[in-house]
């Protein structure tokens, strides 16, 4: 009992000292709470569906950020990983009768393989050349899918997949918890030594090389990690939609991911996640005006990027928080002195 009280006290101390001190951390905490508590407010299947799909796409957008935002490996064909994950899961589920619990991780491994296949030839390329080469890969796979219709279902895709569970709430919690866990893992990766090296490769690859770090290995690792998370998203999508079709590999899918990540703020992980949670439901919300849906979407993205070139979330964060010039710790913007080193913030 005493131990429990001790842990509660410790937890409270962490919350008070580490979370409640910064609006961004409070927002993340609230985001977790709202997602977990949403079924207490509504169990509308339509809203639940939108949140589930948003969660899946949030994983996808964050996985792009891990590769392109952090490591600077500009990937314009991210749909490849998503599509490979979706198709591999679908094939395993429909032909080998492997349940989603097995087919989704195996699909993600297939996407890791795809990451290696793309990563190796792309190691020598940079910037525009890399972007254009990566763009070609999902198109190549699309060609293979159309060439092997007996296996891949061709234009129809592979349908009749089983869902994880038939329960509305079961599906909801499975998807949002997976999203929260995977995004936290991605964020922790970027916060680790590996993440630092990713960051450094983006800023100055030559400098990293001269420091004795094998950048090739780290770039391949970034491709594989990104492929893994995007593959999970693809598998979850295929099983939730009960179909893996060519639309998962379309160019529009690759570009939508880039738009989400840039809109939210690249090289943050939480930025792309927030962007998907804003833009995807927003597109659903403007269904009342179908002719102008895409136009409204485009205006919002353009307006945001025009005035917030770093992305929406870093802009908001910079408005509500300030970085201490001495110790680099973030503080709420209303503070005059740093909460750690008491240096003046203005």
């Amino acid at each position: 009992m005493d131990l429990a009280i001790l842990y509660v006290k410790k937890f409270y101390k962490i919350i008070r000292g580490e979370v409640l001190v910064l609006p961004s951390r409070i927002s993340v905490g609230l985001f977790f709470l709202v997602l977990i508590g949403l079924p207490l407010i509504t169990r509308d299947p339509y809203i639940i569906r939108i949140i589930i799909l948003t969660s899946i796409f949030a994983i996808l957008a964050a996985s792009w950020d891990l590769l392109s935002g952090f490591t600077g490996q500009m990937n314009f064909g991210h749909a490849l990983f998503f599509g490979v994950g979706a198709y591999a899961s679908a094939l395993l589920n429909v032909h080998a009768h492997i349940p989603p619990w097995g087919s989704v991780p195996l699909g993600a491994l297939a996407a890791v393989m795809a990451g290696l296949i793309v990563g190796i030839p792309c190691l020598r390329l940079k910037h525009t050349y890399l972007a254009l080469t990566t763009l070609a890969f999902p198109i190549i796979l699309l060609g293979i899918i159309f060439a092997l219709p007996d296996w891949t279902g061709g234009e129809l895709g592979i349908s009749g997949l089983t869902r994880f569970t038939s329960s509305l709430l079961g599906n909801y919690y499975l998807h949002i918890i997976t999203m929260l866990v995977l995004c936290t893992i991605m964020w922790k990766i970027t916060d680790s030594n590996t993440g630092l090296i990713f960051h450094a490769i983006r800023e100055d690859e030559l400098a990293v090389k001269t420091a004795g770090i094998n950048t090739t290995r780290y770039k391949l690792l970034a491709f594989c990690l990104s492929g893994f998370f995007a593959g999970i998203a693809g598998g979850l999508y295929a099983h939730y939609m009960r179909i893996a079709g060519p639309s998962t590999l379309e160019v529009s899918m690759s570009f939508t991911v880039v738009i989400w990540a840039i809109f939210g703020g690249a090289a943050t992980i939480y930025g792309p996640v927030a962007a998907v949670f804003i833009l995807f439901p927003l597109l659903e919300f403007v269904r009342f005006w179908p002719e102008y849906r895409t136009l409204i979407f485009a205006f919002i993205v353009l307006f945001t990027l025009l005035y917030m070139p770093e992305g929406l979330i870093p802009w908001v964060r910079d408005k509500i928080e300030k970085e201490c010039p001495r110790c680099k710790i973030r503080n709420v913007s209303t503070r005059k002195t740093c909460r750690i080193c008491t240096a003046g913030l203005d």
Binding site: Y46, M241, S252
Partner: peptide, 12 residues
């Protein structure tokens, strides 16, 4: 343009 959109429209 978007198959996900189509499924959402049906759910709606």
């Amino acid at each position: 343009i978007n198959v996900t959109d189509a499924a959402n429209a049906m759910e709606r």
